[in-house]
Each structure stands twice: as C-alpha cells, then as structure tokens.
Design a protein around this nucleic acid. Structure first.
Length: 109
DNA sequence: CCGGTGACAAAGC
DNA sequence: AGCTTTGCCACCG
C-alpha cells in the first residue's frame, strides 16, 4: 500500500490507543514520538476525529497537564471523571501528580 | 478548489 | 526571565 503519506492522524490514534490506563501523555510527546515535535497542534486536532474511534482522548492533555480538550467532550466534566475513574487526580481541569501519571511513548515504547 | 482553522509547543525577541 | 510569534499539516467550509 502506498501509504507513504502516513496520515498524521492515524499515527496519533495508534499511539493514543497504546496509552495505559491511569496514565496520561501530552500532545507534544506524541508528536515528538511521531517525528514532528512541532506538530503538537495536529495531534490535538486529530483527536477531533477520535469521536467514534477507540482513542482515549481523555488521556491526552497538554504540556501542563491541563485538560485543554475537555471542552470538546460531551458535557462539562466528562473528561475529568474518566481520568479520576482510572486513578488520575484531576482538579479544576488540572492533573495532579502529573509526573506520576505522565506516560511518555518515547520512553515506554 | 483554496483559505482558514485548530485539543500545543518551542523558538525568538 | 516572560511574552510574542512561528511552525505543523490535515480537516472543514
């Protein structure tokens, strides 16, 4: 197959599915793992298409551990509830113990 | 078909 | 040392 284009989105989805439960990662980490550290924006935008896929977008947050994408979820605190349900402490859209729950594909994979 | 946008991050000033 | 601007590239209108 000539998928040399390697849809950035598809790659993002793949990595996102590899995120273990109770862990979170940043858009930049995924982008960097894909070889496009400056394409963090695309990673987040890719999550727009995650709606309908098995991509745990709620495990993907920004560099500060802030649930930036929660605004795209259904309702208001759905994303936060999902993370807390997995053992991640989230207060005011801010992930607590980020260093503890942070998962870097470049290191784990 | 082409322009604008977008869930961020890092480099520049 | 902090704020500003660019980069990234696919999707939506």
């Amino acid at each position: 197959m000539k998928s040399e284009t390697l849809n950035f989105f598809d790659k993002v989805y793949m990595v996102a599915r590899l995120i273990p439960h109770g862990r979170v990662t940043s858009y930049g980490a995924i982008a960097k793992y894909l070889g496009a550290a400056r394409s963090a924006r695309m990673v987040g935008y890719a999550m727009n298409g995650s709606g309908g896929k098995d991509v745990p977008a709620h495990r993907v947050v920004n560099r500060k551990g802030l649930l930036t994408g929660k605004h795209h979820f259904d309702g208001t605190n759905l994303m936060q509830q999902l993370l807390e349900s997995e053992g991640v402490s989230v207060i005011e859209n801010q992930i607590q113990n980020l260093d503890k729950v942070y998962w870097d594909p470049s290191e784990e994979l």
